[in-house]
Amino acid sequence: MKILDWYILKRYLFTFLMMLLLFIPIAIMVHLAEKIGKILSNDVPFDELALYLLNFTIYFANLLFPLFLFLSVIFFTSKLANNTEIVAFLSSGVSFTRFLRPYIIGATIVAIMALFLGMFLAPKASQGFNEFKYKYLSRGKNIQDTKDVFRRITDNDIIYVSSFDPKSKRGQNFTLEHFKDNKLEYKIFANNIKYVEEDSIYQLVNYYKRTYDSIGNVTVEEKRNENVEFSFDVDDLTPVNYIAETKPYGELIDFIDKEKKRGSPNIGRYEVVKYKKWSLPVSVFILTIIAVAVSSIKRRGGMGVNLAIGITIAMVYVFFDKIFGVLAEQSDFSPLVAVWFPNVVFGILALYLLNNAKR
């Protein structure tokens, strides 16, 4: 049976790699054709463009990794079914579960690749991809939340800025509240705040500080201008929207914990990225089983029918994945449920199709 295992496993991995090599260059050409005007008008250096395309390749492959695998398994398994090879395997006394074993081995290899890609390679590629995109292709688009910034910067300090410009590092209507033992100790107001990078200080205009003592007395301090050293970094005030995608898993966990303490409104968005790093490898097994169950039967319409069924299932999977992902990012819907719901639904479908295929 090792011959059968190696035969299917080689076809599994080879077809998957060929699918990647086929679709990724097409995706690059389509993307270049769409963006070539902006690339030329912005005089993008060739080395930056080449690095961007490399990052785009990794970003695109990570995004559609399971779907490429799904279609490749349907393609080569349908060929086996049309050539009656599967009938020969099963007629020789091989059970359908035993026939499925090399597929599971192949899925394990691909899942490990997907896990490594999502944990380490994809974050770096995503950072380069997004930085190039917003530098040359999407100028003027707001990539940071700069209005009504409200954050807990330490266990005792909470800040608020009505508006903040990351480029000039200036903010309007700044407030800082400092607590000690759950009691307000002092509060700082300023009409304007500016970060001076050379001195690592903040310049406050129309500075006003109100201090409260233990018996309720209030001391007021007012100044036209005041230079203050705060414990927070200016980049922490308004992190870019895609920052979670750019962090390896360990850094992402620390970042989310820090953002929760700061009261960030984007926790749902960050946790969707975290959970997808684990759900993606699991989806490899689910989609592999579905693909084998759908395409192992020889149909009157041949491979075209199997591919049509496979593409339909893939579109529904992507629909569920995107809809629930956006729902978690834009509302209070649980990110854990949103990310894993498609896998649960399609996992049940995989078991149902597998039981029918065994019969």
Rank of each mutant, 00 (worst) to 15 (best):
I256A: 08
S200F: 07
K274A: 11
V344C: 06
V284I: 15
T211K: 12
Y212K: 14
I143H: 05
I289V: 14
M303N: 13
Q172A: 08
D47V: 12
V240M: 12
S295T: 05
V161H: 04
L13N: 05
A314Q: 02
R98I: 00
I215L: 13
L69K: 11
E229F: 11
D148C: 00
L252T: 13
L327Y: 13
G93R: 04
D5I: 07
L32S: 12
H178W: 10
L121I: 14
L63Y: 11
F65V: 02
L287N: 02
A81Y: 07
L67F: 12
I289P: 04
M303C: 02
A357V: 02
A88H: 11
L252V: 09
I8E: 06
N130C: 04
K194R: 14
F89W: 01
D321L: 15
S162Q: 14
Y160L: 03
A190G: 09
M113L: 15
G268H: 01
Q127S: 11
G140F: 02
I105N: 10
T146H: 01
I297D: 01
F189S: 04
D43E: 15
K261I: 00
I188V: 15
Y207S: 09
K223E: 15
E251C: 01
L80G: 02
L40G: 06
F174N: 08
F129D: 10
N82L: 12
W6E: 05
K10D: 04
I3D: 09
L21Y: 08
I253Q: 08
K38F: 02
G171N: 04
Y59N: 05
D181N: 12
N306V: 04
V196E: 15
V273M: 04
K209H: 01
M18G: 13
R98E: 05
E329A: 06
Y275A: 08
F96M: 08
W6D: 03
L4P: 07
D236M: 09
A338I: 01
E34G: 04
N192M: 05
V218F: 03
F96G: 01
L117M: 12
F255R: 12
Y59F: 03
T84G: 00
T288I: 02
G118P: 00
V234R: 07
K124A: 09
Y208I: 01
Y59G: 04
N173I: 05
D5F: 08
V240Y: 13
I28L: 04
L53H: 03
P281M: 06
Q330W: 11
Q127F: 06
H31K: 15
F255T: 07
F99N: 01
W278H: 09
I188Y: 07
D165I: 02
I26L: 14
F189V: 02
N356G: 08
L349I: 13
I188P: 00
F189D: 10
A50V: 15
G171A: 07
A50C: 11
